[in-house]
Structure formats: C-alpha cells, structure tokens
Simulated scan of single mutants.
Amino acid sequence: MKYSINLFGFMVDCDFKIDGENLGIEIPEENQKALKQYLIRVLPKYGREASIESSLDTLVKLALDAEKSLDGRMVEPKLKLPYEFQPEIKEKLIEAAALQEMSATQLLIRIIENKYQEIMGE
C-alpha cells in the first residue's frame, strides 16, 4: 500500500508491506536520497553535524536524537525565495503543495532536489 509519512518534518512516499501480523515500511531509493538531502540541510539547525559523506543510517539516528530533545518535531527551514513567480504559477504551486500537505517552499525544494538527482545521476 502506498502512503506518505512525515519523517522529521519531511513528507516521504513509501510502501507499507504487511505479512501476517508484521508491518514493514519500504522507502524507494529516490525518496531515501531526498530524505538524506533534507536531513543534511536541516540537522545543523538542531546542533547536529551532518555532511554528504554521512550515511542515511547515521542521519536518521541524529534526527531521532534531535527530535527526542525537542518538545515537538523537526521542521524544514523557512526560506524566502529571492524572486517572484507569475501569479498563475504561484497559485498552481500553492494548490499542488496543499494537496501534498506541505508548504509551497517545501514542494519547490523537493522538485529541485528531484531534478538535480535526475540530472546528476545520483
């Protein structure tokens, strides 16, 4: 079953696998890469060292540790984009983001990361 979950303030598409009474979650490789990039970008805000060389396992452990020290959940850093969109493009971006239960900035970052990974072959 396909489902989106919020991991450390980042929406990740995944597959739930049920085998009898056992529940497992599988995250496609491209979504794992996007989660890794997100954690590298966000963890320093919470006082955790993260770099491109860090494994996803290490980053997830750091994120778990960071969230345990918070009263709430980690969140995507807010950024003000230094340019303006045409009104109809901005409306489409906001509508698409709302359908995925994320901010327009988060959606734009995800689109850029996906395109970067596609071009760079990561």
Rank of each mutant, 00 (worst) to 15 (best):
Y3F: 09
Y3K: 15
Y3V: 15
S4F: 13
S4H: 14
S4D: 15
I5C: 14
G9E: 13
F10D: 05
F10Y: 15
F10W: 12
V12Y: 13
V12K: 08
D13C: 10
D13M: 12
D15N: 14
D15T: 12
F16H: 08
D19G: 06
E21S: 13
E21D: 14
N22Q: 12
N22A: 13
N22K: 13
L23H: 08
L23F: 09
E26K: 09
I27A: 05
I27Q: 03
P28E: 09
E30Q: 10
E30A: 09
E30H: 06
N31A: 08
K33P: 00
K33L: 11
A34V: 01
A34T: 01
A34G: 01
K36Y: 01
K36N: 03
Q37Y: 00
Q37H: 00
L39D: 00
L39F: 01
L39H: 01
I40M: 02
I40D: 01
I40S: 02
R41Q: 05
R41D: 06
R41G: 02
L43E: 01
Y46C: 03
R48A: 04
R48K: 10
I52D: 11
L56N: 05
L59V: 01
L59F: 04
L59C: 03
V60D: 00
K61A: 04
K61V: 02
A63V: 03
A63K: 00
L64K: 08
D65T: 05
D65I: 03
D65R: 04
E67R: 06
K68D: 07
S69K: 10
D71V: 11
G72W: 10
G72I: 09
V75K: 12
E76C: 07
P77C: 05
K78V: 12
K80Q: 15
L81Q: 03
P82T: 09
E84Q: 11
F85Q: 07
Q86D: 14
Q86M: 12
E88Y: 13
E88K: 14
I89A: 15
I89D: 11
I89N: 08
K90I: 04
E91I: 08
E91A: 15
K92H: 09
L93W: 05
E95S: 14
A98H: 07
L99G: 08
L99F: 08
E101T: 09
S103W: 00
A104R: 02
A104L: 05
A104Q: 04
A104Y: 00
Q106L: 04
L107P: 01
L108I: 02
I109R: 01
I111Y: 06
I112G: 03
E113W: 01
E113T: 09
N114Y: 02
N114I: 05
K115A: 10
Y116M: 07
Q117C: 08
G121T: 11
